[in-house]
Design a protein around this nucleic acid. Structure first.
Length: 787
RNA sequence: GGGCGAAUAGCUCAGUUGGUUAGAGCGCCUGCCUUACACGCAGGAAGUCGGGGGUUCGAGUCCCUCUUCGCCCACCA
């Protein structure tokens, strides 16, 4: 239905198809993007050491090669000076197997210890060949022995040194991580090492070094080793030809957008991470040696040897010489199509589509921080480069689901929770509500895979509650027309009606505040207030739940029970208010409880709804009024109910027993309120309530309401005077203690003169109220305890 | 090695520019199958706000420091 409605408002996209499939539309967009970058000189082919996964057999970008803390060993190896066998230098390495491809050793030019060796040679152990000692800033005098071996083909940094010093670059490890001479090695791999896996070769090399007396020492060493993000295999630096995107020019507007507030990242602290990455951005290796993916749209002509040609259409012959051409064998990094997502889904490269004009830029991009660089930052760059505009104005980064030991849920650890299991057990809404309610801004969500029921109890209980409220409403509302609230004259509303309507308004206001001001297309800097506001989804979930459960169900629904059974005009008022409030509650909840709210809303009797309207497309609720007369007065009735229930519990009065209770108002207004609400209070507490000026004689339980009105429950025989006396005395003691603190604060000149006036006035009012209450309590205690 | 964040009830977390007696859910205790709901209702217990110091009339909130976790970045072999 929603898809139909989207189509009805002009969307022409095929919404049933994932943007990630290799659809012709996406292929066209990917090729267009590649060619545009190529023509702009931002894509180039480079020969260098890149990250390579020997299991996936493909190159990886910097982001795909994840550094992981690894405990390894630091091997100290002795290299004898060629022209002075009495002298040797020691070199530290974590990867002795790459020694076979060493072409030099480097020392820092400022390092006095080795100055005389620069330009001379040392003997590479095992191979017994001479390699030069060179001076290069790359060598850090502070680390290890200050001498570093240079292996240009198997280390990205060594490669740079190799380029600077025009060194040969023999390759001794192949694409599968096996020891083998691949190019220019000239007999560097000994027979006994050939064909060994790099790990095995390391063991063997160490043994050989030790046997030759060249292993000086071996110590534990913790360092970051890059692993393939897909299969977790240790990444092998590998010398190869790859395609790269020059990122620096692309990063300029993307950096500016976050700096000037065009794009806001929530939580804010990620902005720093984003900015740091952008400022230090490195070229993006986009070619992959995989079978599945968008093939790189570049053709080569072997006949005339012209430069590689990028093309929007497949080439069958060389445009220069007419000779045969061949297409590049590699495919593109999957993220190369992903970064086009905000534009490709809307029809790009055609920007005249209805979708594009209607929906670009979009509003909020929701994602986990783990793909901030892979995807989000690149989408921003693509938006600016290809369309000239930001793709969204807000980036919302949510937490990651973890187990009780705070580990990411993963298949290999077996600590995951299958969402589909949760859906079948408790429903999709229970899952959704639980996760949103449990997700503070910037905080991970902890769920217990060993106790799925308890983990999702919040959502399950709440959605069930919602369902049951509707069951009550629908079975008690009857078939007569329900009036829209606007047609009910406000003087017909009861205090309970006014109270729930005011609570609804307050809830709407608080939810709006939690979600924050909508600011599409903002271009100036966000204010501090706005920066802090918004996107607090857990607060939104909690506030709506508290309203629906704690106020609507626990109080208002209970107050309507009598009225709905009656047949007077008041019944229609109650029905109108109940339907109105529940309708608004469903609208507020719909984004986090979509299925249950939609199903219930469809059954609500409402005169202004056409049969095919969806809750999903109705308007977000607005506050009705600034104030609801008499709403506040209902609090006195609620207090009376709570007070009575507490007394019942304290004295263990049988739940089924009806008791008598007397309310003694503290003012004329309180008298009016309590007299009008006494029937309701009585029904909610199984009590016969009377409002009187005088306390009844005999032993009784007492409660003092906040306005000074009293609640007295005569309990002749059942009452334990001593206990009642102790209870009130305790209450009095507490109050006196707090009052003493308060008065001390008010006597403090520092407080009175420096605190803002409204704070001081608030405290004074409080002092008056407490003093009044204290007097009444003292009276009671005197009466009861006879002291 | 840099940078950032967190520490509040048994557990998971709120607490918005410092200002009532610090809150919620789950769990726990007591009593209830009250005709919407036991996935429920009513009542209740439970916190030296990680330790120490400071600023302030006033600190869970701001500053310093220590401890313990976590995240991001980084070519130190």
């Amino acid at each position: 239905q929603i898809i139909d409605q989207l189509k009805a408002i002009g969307s022409s996209a095929d919404w049933s198809r994932s943007a990630y499939t290799l659809s012709p539309e996406l292929s066209r967009a990917v090729r267009e993007a590649f060619v545009r970058l190529f023509e702009a000189g931002l894509i180039y082919r480079g020969h260098r050491v890149i990250h390579w996964c020997p299991r996936c057999l493909t190159s990886l970008s910097d982001e795909e090669a994840e550094p992981q803390e690894t405990v390894g060993k630091l091997y100290h190896v002795r290299y004898v000076v060629a022209d002075d066998p009495s002298r040797a230098i020691t070199i530290a390495t974590t990867r002795p197997e790459t020694m076979l491809a060493d072409v030099a050793v480097a020392v820092n030019p400022s390092d006095d210890r080795y100055g005389d060796l620069v330009g001379r040679s040392v003997i590479l152990p095992i191979l017994n060949i001479e390699i030069p000692v060179i001076a290069d800033e790359y060598a850090d005098p502070e680390f290890g022995t200050g001498v570093v071996k240079i292996t240009p083909a198997h280390d990205a940094n060594d490669f740079e040194v190799g380029v600077r010093h025009k060194l040969p670059m023999p390759v001794v490890i192949d694409e599968r991580g096996t020891m083998r001479e691949v190019s220019d090695a000239q007999g560097r791999v000994p027979q006994e090492l050939a064909g060994l896996d790099r790990e095995d070769a390391r063991e063997r090399m160490v043994a050989m070094l030790r046997a030759g007396g060249n292993l000086v020492k071996l110590e534990p060493h913790t360092h970051a080793v890059r692993h393939c993000y897909r299969c977790n295999t240790v990444v092998e630096p590998r010398l190869s030809d790859q395609w790269f995107v020059r990122m620096k020019p692309l990063s300029v507007p993307a950096l500016q957008a976050v700096r000037d507030g065009t794009i806001r990242i929530v939580p804010e602290r990620w902005e720093g991470v984003y900015i740091h990455w952008m400022e230090n951005i490195r070229d993006w290796n986009i070619s992959r040696q995989l079978w599945w993916g968008h093939r790189i749209p570049v053709w080569y002509c072997d006949a005339c040897g012209s430069d590689p040609m990028a093309s929007r259409t497949d080439l069958s012959a060389c445009p220069t010489c007419g000779g045969p051409v061949r297409q590049d064998e590699d495919v593109l990094d999957t993220w190369f199509s992903s970064w086009l997502w905000p534009i490709s889904t809307l029809g790009w490269p055609d920007t005249n589509t209805k979708d594009f004009k209607a929906f670009y830029p979009t509003d909020v991009l929701v994602s986990g921080p783990d793909i901030l660089f892979f995807w989000i930052a690149r989408m921003v760059m693509a938006g600016y480069f290809f369309v000239g505009k930001h793709p969204f104005h807000t980036i919302y980064l949510h937490g990651i689901v973890r187990d009780t030991e705070h580990r990411k849920m993963s298949k290999s650890l077996g600590n995951g929770i299958d969402p589909l299991d949760v859906v079948s057990l408790y429903g999709a809404d229970a899952l959704r509500y639980t996760v949103i309610a449990g997700m503070g801004l910037g905080v991970d969500i902890i769920l217990d895979p060993n106790n799925v029921e308890q983990s999702f109890a919040v959502g399950r209980n709440f959605t069930t509650k919602l369902w049951n409220i509707a069951r009550f409403l629908l079975s008690n509302i009857g078939d007569d027309d329900v009036q829209p609230l606007e047609r009910i004259p406000s003087e017909r509303l009861t205090r309970a009606d006014a109270w729930i309507l005011s609570r609804l308004d307050a809830t709407i206001a608080e939810v709006d505040a939690a979600l924050g001001p909508p600011r599409p297309g903002a271009t100036e800097r966000w204010t501090e207030t706005e920066r802090r506001a918004g996107m607090r989804l857990n607060e939104y979930a909690e506030r709506t739940r508290a309203f629906v459960w704690g106020e609507l169900a626990d109080w208002y629904v209970e107050t309507t029970k009598g009225r709905l059974q009656s047949s007077g005009e008041d019944r229609d008022v109650a029905r109108a208010v109940l339907v109105h409030v529940f309708d608004r509650a469903l609208r507020l909840l719909h984004p986090i409880v979509p299925f249950v709210t939609e199903a219930l809303w469809q059954r609500l009797p409402q005169s202004d709804r056409t049969p095919d309207t969806l809750l999903a497309t109705t308007a977000w609720p607005l506050r009705a009024r600034l104030a609801w007369p008499r709403a506040e007065e209902f609090e006195l009735a609620r207090e009376a109910v709570s007070g009575l229930r507490q007394i019942r519990a304290d004295y263990g009065i049988a739940p089924g027993a009806t008791i008598a209770a007397v309310l003694i108002p503290s003012s004329a207004n309180a008298r009016a309120v309590l007299a009008e609400e006494q029937a309701l209070v009585g029904r909610l507490t199984r009590a016969d309530i009377s409002v009187s000026g005088d306390p009844p004689p005999g032993a009784a339980a007492h409660a003092l309401l906040s306005d000074g009105s009293e609640l007295i429950v005569p309990l002749e025989g059942a009452i334990d005077v001593e206990k009642e006396c102790a209870k009130l005395t305790n209450e009095l003691t507490q109050l006196e203690k707090q009052l003493a603190f308060l008065l001390k604060r008010l006597e403090n000149d520092g407080f009175v003169s420096r605190a803002p006036a409204h704070v001081v006035e608030g405290e004074r009012q409080k002092a008056r109220d407490w003093t009044e209450r204290r007097e009444r309590l003292r009276e009671k205690v005197k009466q009861l305890c006879g002291t």
